[in-house]
């Protein structure tokens, strides 16, 4: 589904990613862990096409297509979803209007008929129940005045509405209390199936108690320095990132 080869990227002139290689297949959950500044969020943003991040080398194919040929909105419509670390507020734009536009843009891209207002509201009710989001939130402007936890839940709700084939969750666990973390994780688990894949970007092993990864990768100084099964997360939690540094001989 996703193949990243020898990827290099810069932010504000500074090299952040220095040769990433990663393959993600349908049905898999990958966790990308690493200390602050290792390039985790950069990788997530490069995948989604944020123009503040400049790719200097390498290739990424998504569903067999060159991702750099696609604008961010096309990537989204191809099925790539980014749950933002810091979801953005859009004053005056209602969640309903925002999501109805998003859902219908996805449908148009797939040559499907746009949803009627009634069908859309029905879909929204179903998904709201699924991710246990407060129904009041969808009556407000996009993320405006939402608490940190509400914003993260709202990201998962949008993911449920858009049913991506590849979901990238950028630090979705940060700022969540245990209850919210459980709700968010439940949502992600419910949305998981054999046809889609998930990339979890996180500092902590805590999230992985709820969403169990098939693979764990350690990102350090712009490169994936270690990959293994879920047991790697426990090892990291126990020994800290210094252990990796030592292993690398630093």
């Amino acid at each position: 589904m996703l193949v990243i080869k020898d990827l290099y990227a810069k932010v504000e002139g500074k090299d952040i990613l220095k040769g990433i290689n990663l393959t993600v297949n349908a049905g898999e959950v990958h966790a990308i862990m690493g200390p602050n500044g290792s390039g985790k969020s950069t990788l997530a943003n490069v995948l989604a096409g944020n123009t503040n991040f400049e790719v200097t080398h390498g290739s990424i194919t998504f569903n067999g297509k060159d991702i750099f040929e696609m604008s961010p909105d096309v990537r989204a419509k191809e099925g790539l979803f980014l749950s933002f670390q810091y979801p953005v507020e859009i004053p005056g734009v209602s969640m309903v209007n925002f999501l109805k536009t998003a859902v219908n843009e996805h449908r148009k891209y797939r040559n499907e008929k746009e949803l009627s207002a009634g069908d859309f509201l029905k879909l929204m009710r179903e998904k709201k129940a699924m991710v246990q989001i407060d129904s009041q939130l969808t009556n407000r402007s996009v993320n405006e005045g939402f608490s940190g936890g509400e914003k993260k839940k709202n990201e998962i709700f949008q993911m449920a509405m858009l049913e991506p084939t590849l979901a990238i969750l950028d630090e979705t666990d940060s700022g969540l209390d245990i209850d919210a973390l459980r709700i968010v994780s439940n949502g992600v688990n419910l949305l998981k199936n054999k046809n889609n894949a998930t990339i979890l970007v996180t500092h902590y092993q805590r999230l992985l108690d709820y969403i169990v990864p098939d693979f764990v990768h350690v990102l350090y100084e712009g490169r994936i320095v270690k990959s293994a099964g879920k047991e790697l997360a426990f090892e990291l939690e126990e020994k800290g990132y210094d252990w990796i540094k030592k292993e690398l001989g630093e």
């Binding site: 989604a48 096409g49 944020n50 123009t51 503040n52 604008s71 961010p72 909105d73 990537r75 989204a76 419509k77 979803f81 980014l82 933002f84 979801p87 953005v88 507020e89 859009i90 004053p91 005056g92 734009v93 209007n97 925002f98 999501l99 536009t101 998003a102 843009e105 996805h106 891209y109 402007s141 996009v142 949008q158 858009l162």
Partner: peptide, 27 residues
């Protein structure tokens, strides 16, 4: 730009995103 990128990431084109943001501002 972050608002536009957020809309883009949900499948909304830049043009539509601007229309939406401006209409929200003027609502």
């Amino acid at each position: 730009e972050d608002q536009i990128f957020y809309c883009n990431q949900r499948g909304i084109s830049t043009e539509d995103a601007i229309g939406m943001i401006v209409n929200g501002y003027a609502r």
